[in-house]
Design a protein around this nucleic acid. Structure first.
Length: 462
RNA sequence: GGCGGCGUAGCCAAGUGGUAAGGCAGCGCUCUGCAAAAGCGUUAUUCAUCGGUUCAAAUCCGGUCGCCGCCUCCA
């Protein structure tokens, strides 16, 4: 399989460091507020990659950090007048709930920054010892001029900064030798949390946490690091600088970055106010699986424009897959399976996997799935239960990658509804269609859709 | 100022040299008590635009127009 590596700006064949295993690090949330669905585009994309690696038979060790100490979390706690840990725990819980709602597989570890301060202190000490960092007024900075590879990931030449940006660049409260140097350790300030360190009390900078925690759980050199494109610079660039200077070896082999979700041609962001949280969408009655489908349905390196129309279309496309699943489950014909079934499955699986192996070409993969659905629907009336079982197993194998079919929907009906359906059947037999339609409308209002088929009445949740 | 991306039917979106996947929406038909689902047919001589290379270009090269991102916290 091939991935587009931001570091080399080309498609590269993926080769794990250790055969059959993948070390995967993804940048997690800063827990000062609810994420919006633009944030979730990245997490859902990362989930797709992870699921595809698993589908391909690889064992994945996935680490996602939680940033629970930084300027924003401190500010939020100050505004609310509650302890930092109380604020961060609230948003951590909310984050995990959203991940479940979007059917995102959990990471193996969710390390929190505040639980790894000693590791960061030790890493900073090492950078100081090796001469890549310096202290100034109680803070510690990384000196980018001492790392020749700086700027390679983001393709930024030093000295090519926007003149205006360079001039006004963060004259912040911290003193640095060079304007582009970044902070590893922020000296203690009144009213802020702090931890002890050989180089003075204080708290970690944002970038150092990802280096320290990825190193702890994945080692100094691992396979894949992912995040949103806006993390390329400076965050990931800085991670590379810190990690490679401390360890003297390559940090990460493959860097994958997900493009932004946009709204009205503008990046969805908190500052522009043009965002929706997952809770907002659920409150409007949107199906979370349609949200997931929409977020994965465009190629990850292209902008995706969010509209309620496109969410509606995603829901309709998903409905085609669900109807297919539904039809297959209704087949109980006896007899031997048609040999053609296995052939069609093999061809579709090859096409599906082939497209995903081509830098996650999801459109191609979905095209292969829909082609298969159409072909199988054409054969549907002749299929035996033995065919249906094979096809269902295949569909669910593909869904192990897509994650858009929600198993939780398959709850049995309660007795009252069963009774209504029976009543309606009796009315239909008696040609009392008015009553039959009234019952159907009543059930529809409760989210149960009835379908009359040659095999008898079927139902599904809307 | 530097770096990078995008522009394919009503909408979404694949396709990077060989003659336009797929999804949604629409229209006609089949099935059906009516629906729903499903099927069949139909929906871009054309890929922002101009020019070039080639037997052949949406795909390569150059120009133009429009839009966006990064260079500062940000998925």
């Amino acid at each position: 399989m091939k991935f587009y590596n931001t570091l080399t700006r080309r498609l590269e064949e993926f080769r794990p460091i250790e055969k059959g295993k993948v070390g995967l690090y993804t940048c997690g949330p800063t827990v000062y507020d609810y994420p919006h669905i633009g944030n979730y585009r990245s997490y859902v994309f990362e989930d797709l990659v992870k699921r595809f690696l698993l589908f391909a038979g690889l064992r994945v060790h996935h680490v996602m950090n939680i940033t629970d100490i930084d300027d924003k979390t401190i500010r939020k706690a100050g505004e609310l007048g509650v302890p930092l840990a109380e604020v961060t725990q609230k948003y951590i819980d909310a984050f995990h709930a959203d991940l479940r709602t979007l059917n995102i597989l959990p990471a193996d570890v969710y390390p929190r920054a505040t639980a790894h301060i000693p590791e960061m202190v030790s890493l900073i000490s090492s950078l100081l010892d090796k001469g890549f960092a310096y202290e100034k007024d109680g803070s510690v900075y990384f000196s980018i001029e001492r790392f020749p590879g700086y700027g390679r990931l983001a393709n930024i030449e030093r000295g090519n900064l926007k003149p205006a940006a360079a001039a006004t660049h963060d004259a912040d409260e911290y003193e640095k030798e060079a304007v582009q140097d970044f902070v590893l350790w922020k000296g203690k300030k009144p009213g802020e949390p702090y931890w002890p360190a050989a180089f003075g009390e204080g708290r970690p900078g944002w970038h150092i946490e990802c280096s320290a925690m990825s190193m702890k759980y994945l080692g100094p050199h691992f396979d894949i690091h992912m995040g949103g494109v806006d993390n390329i610079f400076p965050h990931h660039e800085n991670e590379i600088a810190q990690s490679e200077c401390a360890n003297g070896m390559t940090f990460v082999n493959y860097w994958l970055h997900c493009q932004h979700l946009i709204v009205d041609n503008k990046k969805m962001s908190k500052s522009l106010g043009n965002f929706h949280t997952l809770a907002d969408l659920l409150q409007r009655g949107c199906d979370p699986m349609a949200v997931r489908y929409l977020l994965i349905s465009a190629h990850y390196r292209k902008l995706l424009n969010f509209t309620f129309d496109s969410l509606e279309m995603a829901g309709q496309a998903l409905a085609r897959i669900k109807n297919f699943d539904f039809s297959l489950k209704s087949i109980h014909n006896p007899g031997e399976a048609d040999p053609e079934t296995a052939g069609l499955i093999a061809a579709a699986e090859k096409a599906f996997a082939g497209h995903l192996a081509d830098d996650l070409n999801i459109s191609g993969a979905l095209g292969a799935l829909f082609d298969f659905i159409t072909k199988t629907n054409q054969r549907m009336t002749n299929l035996k239960q033995k065919d249906a079982v094979q096809v269902l197993a295949f569909l669910h194998r593909l869904n192990s990658v897509l994650g858009v079919l929600d198993a939780a929907e398959e709850k049995p009906l309660d007795a009252v509804i069963e009774e209504k359906i029976g009543e309606r059947e009796a009315a239909r037999k008696a040609k009392n269609f008015k009553k039959a339609d009234a019952i159907r409308a009543e059930l529809k209002a409760r989210g149960i859709v009835l379908m009359d088929t040659p095999d008898g009445v079927k139902w599904k949740k809307e």
